[in-house]
């Protein structure tokens, strides 16, 4: 009996996972392809761009600066042993553009904006705002969900590019101004080795993919959560955990495909 019920539990967990995947796919499809009047949805998108993008700027800039500075410091300490400390600019730029820029931005974005999205939508569901909208004939997918999805898709790649620029500038601050690497070789080594299409644009493609995944997970977890205070807290935790894990996993796959 106990063995049978354990197998049944396993089956139920599998079915739950698959049906959640299916629901999230249908949810995304409906939210993105639903038509709305342009003027109205633009104002909604604007508010979400402010909440999701502009308010995340501070944490992105500060962490980009420090990560760039640490990269330059570590790279300098290693490279100076080989007498090639002028390659530190190239190392900082490639590390940030290819990996750390998109990945760290996505992780911070999941923590800063994704959790907020989940909690906000979850609370709307728990206080029955979503069902009231349906009652008065407003589709919550179009009014609440779609602007948040688009805001995430648009703002995260922008944040990732800002992160890279600030990080490289922070690296220059440490390497050139503090450690005394010649600034001409810092920048020219970087320009010689960084390819616009191979490095910069692939980084942007990564950021777009991560933006899609993180925002999708955050919004769906909020929309699909159990409408209780405990359910909201669980959904918020799930957003951060699932989004971080899928970003790291996807990063490996994308890197294997791109470079």
């Amino acid at each position: 009996m106990s063995v049978m019920s354990r197998i049944a539990l396993l089956g139920r967990a599998g079915l739950d996972t698959i049906s959640a995947l299916g629901r999230s796919g249908v949810f995304l499809f409906n939210a993105l392809l639903g038509r709305t009047r342009f003027g109205n949805s633009f104002t909604l998108l604007l508010k979400q761009l402010y909440a999701v993008g502009v308010l995340s700027l501070a944490i992105i800039i500060v962490s980009g600066l420090f990560i760039g500075m640490v990269l330059a410091l570590q790279g300098y300490n290693i490279l100076v042993g080989y007498g090639s400390e002028q390659a530190v600019g190239q190392m900082v730029a490639l590390t940030l553009l290819r990996e750390l820029g998109p990945v760290v931005t996505a992780l911070l974005f999941a923590g800063r904006a994704g959790s907020a999205l989940t909690a906000e939508i979850g609370l709307m569901k728990a206080t029955e705002q979503l069902s009231s909208m349906e009652m008065i004939g407003v589709d919550p997918l179009k009014y609440v969900i779609a602007p948040r999805l688009w805001a995430g898709f648009i703002s995260m790649p922008l944040l990732s590019m800002i992160f890279c620029v600030v990080g490289i500038w922070g690296g220059a601050l440490v390497a050139v101004d503090w450690l005394g690497v010649y600034s001409g070789s810092y920048w020219s080594n970087m320009q010689n080795s960084v390819e616009f299409f191979d490095d910069v644009l692939n980084g942007v493609v990564k950021a777009v993919v991560f933006a899609f995944v993180v925002t999708w997970i955050a919004v769906f977890q909020g929309y699909d959560c159990e409408p209780t205070s405990e359910g909201i807290s669980r959904a918020t935790t799930r957003t951060v955990v699932y989004a971080s894990l899928s970003v790291l996993g996807l990063d490996f796959i994308l890197t294997a495909l791109m470079f």
Binding site: L46, K47, L49, Y50, G53, V54, L57, A93, L97, I154, S155, P157, L158, L159, M161, I162, C164, V165, I168, W187, M190, Q191, N192, V194, E195, F196, D199, V200, V204
Partner: peptide, 26 residues
């Protein structure tokens, strides 16, 4: 709000230009 969001998007696009011209020497 429009102004702040506009500035944010401009800064993001400017970052792409910096990446292209200053960092990758395009």
């Amino acid at each position: 709000l429009e102004l702040v969001v506009g500035v944010f998007i401009l800064v993001g696009l400017l970052a792409l230009v910096v990446l292209a011209v200053r960092i990758s020497g395009l």
